[in-house]
Design a protein around this nucleic acid. Sequence first.
RNA 1: GGCGCUAUCGUCUAACGGUUAGGACGGAGCCCUCUCAAGGCUUAAAUACGAGUUCGAUUCUCGUUAGCGCUACCA
Length: 472
Amino acid sequence: MRVRFAPSPTGYLHIGSARTFIFNWLYARHHGGTVILRVDDTDLERNTEESLQSIFEGLKWLDLSWDEQYRQSERLELHRTMAQRIFEKGAAYRDFTPMHAEGEEKAHGDGPWLFNPGMPDLPLEESNRRAEAGEPFVIRFRVPRNSEQAVKFDDGVFGPQSKQTADIEDFALLRSNGMPTYHMASCADDIDLRISHIIRGQDHLSNTFKHLLIFEALDAPPPVFAHLPLLIAPDGAKLSKRKHGQVVSVTTYRDAGFLPHGYVNFLCLLGWSPKDDREQMSRQELVDAFKFEGVNRSNAVVNFSEQDPIDPKALWLNSQHLRTMPVDELAPLVRETLVRHGFDIVEDESVLAHTVDIVRSRFSTLLDFVSRGRAYFSDQFEIAPEALEKLNQPGARELLRELGVRLEALAEFNEQTVEAELRKLAIERTVKAGVIINAARAALSGQPVGPSAFAVFIAVGRERALQRLRNA
RNA sequence: GGCGCUAUCGUCUAACGGUUAGGACGGAGCCCUCUCAAGGCUUAAAUACGAGUUCGAUUCUCGUUAGCGCUACCA
């Protein structure tokens, strides 16, 4: 079992591409197959090295592996040889019609365009002569025209598919500059790399008929095809860089502080379902549950808006992973994020893990640790305006000062002793404990809201806590 | 235009032809509580439209409408 993911480096890693990659990966891992990454870079004009890097960056972040890697541009000889083979057996021909200019109207009024007049039946002799003379041409596939014939296949997701050859145009195999087209390169490589299952976007569903013709002309057994519904924008349009901006790039979610697996999990749920109401799933659970039968046939909307570029469900799913994953797996990710944002992390592993564990249930992304969680990991933090209100309660500052003095005298500094001391103070001064508690949280964490104030004392640590009470 | 594909709450989705059409996100409300989350509970919200087949249709068939894809010497 061999599958391939074939991105073309003409932009950053699109979330739709990422999902295609994930589904390929899941399918292969489910069946113990091989995952092949093939860079489809035959379009010299639009390929960029930068884009290639950004795709690798995205794939690396998703943290899914592949087993073999190829670049189409290094396999052009193979593509040409195979095109030549099709030409030699007469299943393709030279078309000398000049390329028509950009934006030019197609010169066929009624009915679909199938081929350029005169070209399919140009005598070989003349064809050879003109080629010899240096006249430019493309190689086109000669789609059978003489009979009522249909190309058929059984799609893993969409079921039985059929199309009359009379409705398929003579598509190009080789361009006039000698470069293979997508159809040619893709099929040649799929054959050569012995791809057994082609899992790709639904935009290729109607191309599959052409591909089947190529496979047949090359006497190659066709692989299994499975097409995936597309990801679309809330307005029903396809996700495009120009219209929807950063929403379509995988790196956006990485930079927004998503857990790689949290985002993978979200993408899986767009157009696929395990059919048993499970949503938060581990990687292994996804691998075990993935089947084509669970893949939907209609396009899925990524639910974002101008104000909120991130799908709320993606955020929710990420927060689920964030608060349920093992702390010792999360802590290093938090540390890495903090370091990347310029924090000096002095806490050792266990202290950090403890703090992470206390605050994580109210965070959704890794970035929350650097913003709302700032005061837990650094002394450089601002008191938020809402937190200031708590501190400005009548008498609050004086109570905190007194609390600080008493806590300093404490023999044992833990949640119980701090709580006992604080409540004692509240009773003596006949104020509600809540006033002191809220003020303390504000002073220690800079936030108006957060974990149990007593847990905050411990997370921040005795010295820092006392210092911050004095500062208040 | 031609060909192909699709259509269940706002969004993601579930439902051997027989369900009060289920779950999740988001919304509203309640409980819990030192705050905010989390958690628990409750609630509003959908089978695009029209025919046909059938005792019975979200499910099968046809039509309409809408959306998407392909129709390049892009992938």
